Simulated assay, not measured.
Amino acid sequence: MGSRTGIYHEGSRAVQDRAGVRDLADHVGRAVGDGIKPVAAAFLELQPLLVLGAAAPDDGRVWASPLAGRPGFVRATGPHQMSVTGRLRPGDPLAPALATDGTPVATIALDPRTRRRMRLNGELRTTEAGFAVTAQRVFANCPKYIQRRDSYELLPGRAAGAPRHGHELTDAQRAFVASADTFFLATVRDGRAEVSHRGGLPGFVRSGSARELTWPDYAGNAMFLTLGNLAVDPRAGLLFLDWTTGTTLQVTGEGQTRFTADGERRVRFTVSEEIETPGAVPLRWSPPEPSPANPPVTT
């Protein structure tokens, strides 16, 4: 898995070539492996939040879901295995997938305190305490576009409210999206999953209508794993999180990348279904310090 051949498929290569960054992608790809190094294991054990991405087994829709707990609930239990103590809340759209052995799953651990993030993708196996993931792809990303949040509180007494389901965004949800400085994006391709982070100044995600979201694809590590997936399979899932109240907005649908004449990229996402859950995450983070890499939001 550490070879460049195993990392990129035709979708990623097509986007890399269009952006003129294939050589850079090959260089960056050398850092991708299938093992969990000691520094990565130490990072995982400090995290109170893990975001997961996968396709639901019943209808194939792609979702991104959060799982939170006391640091140590995620840990490396071998050079190629990550174990998680805990399960998704009942009713989460990915709960059935995470209760099924062999599910391809993607994870990202993001630490706002240090602006570090780590991605681990692989195959899931259920355990008595939760689940484990046999790692197939492990790598870190740069701190670009991560808003710093210096501290958090774990609120074990916070209980998730009743989820609200719909097939388009309400006005309040569109305002929530417009105020977001962070979201997570899950994609799939040929039985594998990816989940990535997107960040920017509030307003970088726009809602053109109750069933459409758009956002710019800022310059990153040149791998184009997410946009490459969308190029061959448009299914995607978004997770927006209120970092204070723990409310989540999960959206599933399809994404398409549009390239402008000046070389910029913008993703258009069509909403199929949304689930809003008050108090879903028992974490309360301190106010954000915007990333110095955030571009200005254009009108």
Rank of each mutant, 00 (worst) to 15 (best):
2 G>Q: 07
2 G>C: 03
14 A>W: 02
21 V>K: 03
25 A>G: 08
28 V>S: 13
30 R>S: 13
31 A>D: 11
34 D>R: 14
36 I>H: 06
39 V>M: 11
41 A>K: 00
43 F>T: 07
44 L>Y: 02
45 E>R: 15
47 Q>A: 05
50 L>D: 04
51 V>I: 15
61 R>N: 06
64 A>H: 08
66 P>W: 04
66 P>H: 05
71 P>A: 06
71 P>N: 09
72 G>A: 12
72 G>V: 13
77 T>R: 00
78 G>I: 01
80 H>F: 11
81 Q>G: 00
89 R>M: 09
94 L>S: 01
95 A>H: 02
98 L>M: 13
99 A>L: 09
100 T>L: 00
101 D>Q: 11
101 D>V: 12
103 T>I: 03
107 T>C: 13
107 T>K: 05
109 A>P: 03
110 L>H: 02
110 L>W: 06
110 L>G: 07
113 R>C: 03
115 R>T: 15
117 R>K: 15
119 R>I: 12
126 T>D: 05
127 T>V: 12
131 F>K: 00
132 A>Q: 11
139 F>I: 10
142 C>D: 15
151 S>F: 02
156 P>W: 08
158 R>K: 12
160 A>T: 03
163 P>W: 06
165 H>T: 12
177 V>R: 00
188 V>S: 04
193 A>E: 09
200 G>A: 02
207 S>T: 15
216 P>D: 11
216 P>W: 04
218 Y>K: 09
222 A>H: 08
222 A>F: 07
228 G>K: 08
229 N>K: 06
232 V>P: 00
235 R>Q: 09
235 R>V: 04
245 T>H: 10
252 T>N: 12
261 A>R: 11
263 G>A: 07
264 E>V: 12
265 R>V: 09
272 S>A: 15
282 P>A: 09
282 P>E: 09
286 S>C: 14
291 S>I: 07
291 S>C: 13
295 P>Y: 06
